[in-house]
């Protein structure tokens, strides 16, 4: 059995939850077994995970899991893994998943691989799986020793497709209390997806000259429905908020499309973005290192090109 932890936020499934279930189902097919999902806390229609491949959904709720706490959630997930005799547990490589993956591995005495971005394979009787290492500069293949495994799944690894119908939901009540008292949650306003989950990202660097010029970047992002990002010096000097900083020391992302305007492409910047599926670089310097990592390049003044690109997208959408 493959057991997938499907994350929610304010009772709604995250995009990462559907990806994790779809990955769990594909892994289960490879291993010749079935896939079930576990949902913890409030969730609207947990049965919908059936459409992504879960044969059954275990819905855990109650005072013991009222808000996210790695310790109680890991206990709940490991408990469900034991009841269902799961050999592979999949979580998302998200802020929750990163808290859970190590805990689950120790609890289940399992081999863990975090940030997997390939489907597993069975090789010489061992479960093997690949992930990016050295900030995307290499790929490592891991083998699981023993018979249980825990993976955390990198976002955007696969596109979840809907088919099939809703699954049976088994409700479980968990009483108890948490050692963590939540004082405050701050979520950014706006419709754009949070950076780690975004499929389309528009990013800009020092080539923008100053924070007052960002309107053209925001307009391009709005037109695409993309999330905005920036290079480190731009966040460090306060031109843009810190949560937009991508790269080695900021957020690591792998969207489907990454558009970089006025960013030179330093190795520490690339470390956080080079796994993007498609990279478009706009830079006026033909020698900018970023062009070497790009799929498409436009060598010109960004103040000229960015508005033109926005217009072209508007035209294509109309």
């Amino acid at each position: 059995m493959v057991l997938v932890y499907a994350e929610t936020q304010n009772g709604q499934f995250k995009k990462a939850a559907f990806e994790a279930v779809a990955y769990g189902k594909k892994s289960a097919d490879i291993l010749g077994t079935s896939c079930e999902a576990i949902v913890v806390g409030n969730a609207e229609n947990p049965g919908q995970l059936g459409q992504y491949g879960a044969a059954k959904v275990h819905h855990l709720n109650g005072s013991g899991v009222a808000h996210f706490d790695g310790k109680s959630y890991a206990s709940a997930i490991a408990g469900a893994a034991e009841r269902t005799n799961a050999k592979l547990v999949v979580v998302s490589h998200s802020s929750q998943g990163k808290t859970l993956v190590g805990r689950l591995a120790v609890k289940m005495d399992a081999g863990s691989v975090s940030g997997v971005n390939h489907l597993p394979e069975q090789k010489d009787g061992k479960l093997c799986v690949k992930k990016n290492v050295f900030s995307g500069k290499a790929i490592a293949e891991y083998a699981i020793e023993g018979d249980a495994a825990v993976f955390s799944l990198m976002g955007n690894t696969l596109k979840p497709e809907q088919s099939g119908s809703d699954a049976e939901v088994v409700n479980v009540t968990l009483d108890g209390s948490s050692e963590i008292e939540i004082l405050e949650v701050n979520l950014q306003q706006g419709d754009a997806a949070p950076l780690p989950e975004a499929e389309l990202v528009v990013s800009a660097g020092r080539g923008m000259k100053g924070p007052e010029n960002w309107e053209i970047i925001e307009e391009l992002a709005r037109t695409l429905g993309a999330t905005t990002a920036c290079s480190r010096p731009v966040a460090d000097t306060g031109w843009r908020p810190h949560h937009e900083h991508v790269g080695q020391t900021g957020v690591a992302i792998r969207p489907n499309l990454y558009i970089a305007a006025g960013i030179s492409g330093a190795i520490q910047h690339l470390a956080g973005v080079s796994s993007s599926k498609c990279i478009v670089v706009i830079n006026k310097d033909p020698e900018a290192p970023f062009f070497k990592a790009a799929d498409y390049g436009v060598c010109a003044d960004l103040f000229d090109v960015v508005p033109k690109l926005t217009e072209a997208i508007k035209k294509a959408k109309a």
Binding site: Q9, K14, S94, S95, E179, I180, E181, I182, L183, E184, V185, N186, L187, Q188, A193, P194, L195, P196, E197, H243
Partner: peptide, 12 residues
């Protein structure tokens, strides 16, 4: 701590 799209403050 950093969570997707924001932050969360807690007491432990």
């Amino acid at each position: 701590r950093d969570i997707e799209g924001g932050s969360e403050t807690s007491k432990i």
